[in-house]
Design a protein around this nucleic acid. Structure first.
Lengths: 214, 214
DNA sequence: AAGGTTTTGTCAAAAATTTATCAATACATT
DNA sequence: AATGTATTGATAAATTTTTGACAAAACCTT
């Protein structure tokens, strides 16, 4: 237990869910939350919740559960919500712009410090707090501020190319929104968040249901 | 084997990746793909690929692999990419609009047949092919066309409420883009695609890397 | 302060998923 | 046609993840 060791990936993927829920509880004035309560709210079992939380630096108390403020603090710390991350968005199309204009990032520790596009006509325009820069200025910008995370919001045909530019610029974490798998060196972390894939997953579920006998 | 049985969830999540890659190969004129080739392109092992494909109605051939056109067809069929799904988007903020204006959905079997918002000032405006309707018209619209999928693109505070409206309107599949877990009856499928969570996952990876000894 | 009760933390079992292995197969080459 | 080789499909092993179970802990009530 305790936070120095490696936390399994399925657990990591659940941590943001815990954080949102616990934060809400704390804001409502709820001071304690049991593993069962958390499990019910998130569609898990209490056993899973306790197992997950055992990876972290905190102890619950019998008969009360976990202290929401403490749990929130620990989760924020693990998920890096307390330190500011510098994020660049590549692609100022509909999706890239929507992200740049989305106010919630700053509140969660993600500061948009660059919005890039290939299209000359877009350069200089502003979305949210970000002004569109030429993709060729990416390397230069990387020299000025350390870029923590790059978001790929370009058409899938350009995704791999953009990924390589980000890697060259020294970016070690990439969020890929393009509908295409990208290949990067093993020291770079990629997380996919593809709306199209999620929709296809739903379409599969619908097909399954339609065919079901019961 | 064979498609009547239940396909494990991790497999389902990989299928869209296979589809994208195989489609690309086929368009490039590549007629055969081995499990090893597919694995390399997608960062998997050949064993996993063969295991995954064994759930489907298709046979590879020794020494050649899988026929790309056949594989693509089978994947499209399983993922429902050949039939049109009716999709509504709730929330005409930046993200909802970006999705409505995103042209790629129609090509993949998802037709936006409604864009709803609570804000009276937005009603009547058009984004992409969709005109914003009042959220109160959702039930009415559901009576006219069968809504297959609902996309929740509202602030997290409204997510649960919107989810319930969708359920009442008879929607059986929901894509939740809000940063909050939603609760629905067990006959409704929910898939989360939360950009914020993905970013937090990356932030965790960055923190881990910073602390690593090697 | 003693007893009852709820909930944790941990260990072990069960289930699910991934990976390794290898005989069978089908193609290519000679 | 015979031989060699690459690749599948299937089975089994290994690993990972989830769930179950229960003693220990801590609170509440009397």
């Amino acid at each position: 237990m305790h936070s120095s060791e490696q936390i399994p990936h399925p657990v990591i993927r659940r941590l943001p869910k815990y954080l949102v829920h616990v934060q809400e509880l704390r804001e409502e004035g709820v001071e304690w939350a049991s593993s069962q309560e958390i499990a019910d709210a998130l569609g898990l079992t209490s056993s899973t919740v306790r197992q997950d939380l055992s990876h972290m630096d905190l102890r619950g108390i019998s008969k009360k559960g976990y202290e929401t403020s403490q749990l929130e603090a620990v989760l924020r710390q693990i998920l890096g919500a307390d330190i500011m991350h510098h994020v660049v968005i590549i692609g100022a199309g509909h999706l890239g712009r929507a992200l740049a204009e989305h106010g919630a990032f700053a509140r969660r520790g993600f500061e948009i410090c660059g919005l890039f596009d290939r299209d000359e006509d877009l350069i200089g325009k502003s979305f949210g707090n970000a002004e569109v820069m030429s993709i060729h200025e990416l390397a230069e910008q990387a020299g000025k501020v350390k870029i923590d995370i790059g978001i790929i919001a370009v058409p899938s045909s350009a995704a791999q190319n953009v990924a390589e530019m980000l890697v060259e610029a020294g970016v070690k974490a990439i969020l890929n929104l393009a509908y295409k798998h990208i290949q990067v060196p093993s020291n770079v972390t990629v997380v996919d968040a593809r709306i199209m894939e999620s929709l296809q997953e739903l379409a599969y579920a619908l097909g399954k249901k339609g065919k079901a006998v019961n």
